[in-house]
Design a protein around this nucleic acid. Sequence first.
DNA 1: CTGAAAGCGCTTACAG
DNA 2: CTGAAAGCGCTTACAG
Lengths: 348, 348
Amino acid sequence: MTVTIKDVARRAGVAQSTVSLVLNQKENIHEQTRLKILKAIKELNYHPRRSARGLATRKSNNIGFILNTQFFTQTEPFYTKVFLGASFEAIKHGYYVLLASVDDNFDPKKSLPNFLLERHVDGVVLAGRVPDSIITYIRQQDIPIVLVDYRVDHFATHAVLIDNLNGAYEAVSHLINQGHRRIAFVGGSCHHPSIQERYDGYKKAIGVLGSHNELNDKLVDLREEESSPQIGFDSTKKLLSLKPRPTAFFTVNDAVAIGCIKALRQSSLRVPEDVAVIGFDDVEWGLHMDPPLSTVRVFKEELGATAARKIIHIIQNKTTVIEKTIIGTELVIRESCGGMRTKDKYEF
Amino acid sequence: MTVTIKDVARRAGVAQSTVSLVLNQKENIHEQTRLKILKAIKELNYHPRRSARGLATRKSNNIGFILNTQFFTQTEPFYTKVFLGASFEAIKHGYYVLLASVDDNFDPKKSLPNFLLERHVDGVVLAGRVPDSIITYIRQQDIPIVLVDYRVDHFATHAVLIDNLNGAYEAVSHLINQGHRRIAFVGGSCHHPSIQERYDGYKKAIGVLGSHNELNDKLVDLREEESSPQIGFDSTKKLLSLKPRPTAFFTVNDAVAIGCIKALRQSSLRVPEDVAVIGFDDVEWGLHMDPPLSTVRVFKEELGATAARKIIHIIQNKTTVIEKTIIGTELVIRESCGGMRTKDKYEF
DNA sequence: CTGAAAGCGCTTACAG
DNA sequence: CTGAAAGCGCTTACAG
């Protein structure tokens, strides 16, 4: 009932291996027989079965996508977008992406994504912070890996990264150009390298001020916990007790910015009139906040799509040279940082 | 190198067909040989290959998940959550879900999700409004279907639905109990049956007022366009021109509520002091809005998980009796509707 | 350039 | 209750 390669071969009057050859775009086929076969394929509406192909080639044409379970409980569907980006890009190349999540306390001996066990993926992309143990496990299996928005210094792995440093640098520079000199760094969680990089960008921008340098450890609030609105709130409250208080807040991401603005409001400070705020990530609802949140846009879908392209490339070409791709960001000026209205205060 | 069923058979000293039998939980196996085989499986860390299994059984153990492309451009990652719910539930049952999207002007003759062409899924769940043509196509292929948050009256299909009617009824009843009598229905798009049901719930609640009935067509603003913040804004502006103006706004979803509140604010109306607002869906950022948005919670992940369970059940049991499952909602009172402070105005 | 044959790793009648 | 054999639908050397 379902049409197979045999049917095509019969109809085209050739051997099934010949059909297979044209199916796989091999060279050295008479143009005539090629056309004949293509015609038969079209007429029969033939599509090779994945599982048959998979069995014969020992390839699944699937990509695994693993992320940390805890990211699902977060306010922001950040990695979900990365996943979507990867998923749709993969489809264009004939791959499907299978989703799985792992806990922080993941133990490869006890639980593992099924697609790893069944060798049902040709490669895997790992998004965000994941336990070392799973990276180690997958490498042992000799399955290619691409990290997205994460890196581990002691592992040489392919990675797609956000240009956090420059993103933060631009945002903070913007605040400086607005005339701000006491700029706080809010709610960073030291656990993630991305956060560290944002902090570095912050420092770099402040450093440019030179003698005007007000880089001051007290203006920085780094935390143990994962960034969240609550952390942003607490962090801001603490920073607000400084005398003189900061005039601008650069938050480590938009979720933190929410808590920050809430704290400011609770202290009867107006945004942006009394204090400027810039977030990071550019999540959905930033645009709808009051005031609309200025932020550093991260191209989440693009991160995922790039990771997909990269893992597919590795799978198909057995590339061995490790390569990191850094995706740029974009400063999005909305209202929470006061726009350009104080531009004339620029005073380098 | 990779361990196969043969290796297990050899190690356990049985035929590979026997191994296959215990793998597939068939009856009638000597407990002793079963144990022996299980032991060998564990020792060798054997896992059957999906593609081999798939080829032999002609099952893919995959589920397709199709949604309308346009939903990706929306403010709210509603269906993304449904997908996530389906995906993780499926994993528990040994299935993976493959994602695809279709356009409104989809034509099965021109483009089709690959997994349909390659018969790489055993069933598919369709989320939200999808073109009739794809439903028709899939049915022709004799692939089981489950709809989520959608239904087409002329197709008898399995479906997982939101209890929109009751959700809307409860929300509007709450407003009525707060003393509101002029309650507007904002920003509905007539295209989706869910919206129609929310409207019905609204009417039902208003209807209970009986002689106090202020059900008034003018208080209702139904639109052609898909619901969005912009629609909410426009719709609210229009409703605000009524004299006397509405004292409460029931918006057709949270995205619309955003625009609604923006319009109210622009008209110098305070929420909830001057006017109450209740949304629908309970999206992420509702909690972080100012004021935090009261809404009707839809259990998005649960919708997806239920759909996954259902399609798997159908796949495995060849169920033929059509069944619709309606998932309840939950009224979430936050600040935008004024809490219970006017409860004493209750006056049936 | 094309065909016949073996094999990928399972499952499923069919005997026994 | 268990084993030998065929078959699922492809791909890939290997001849020719």
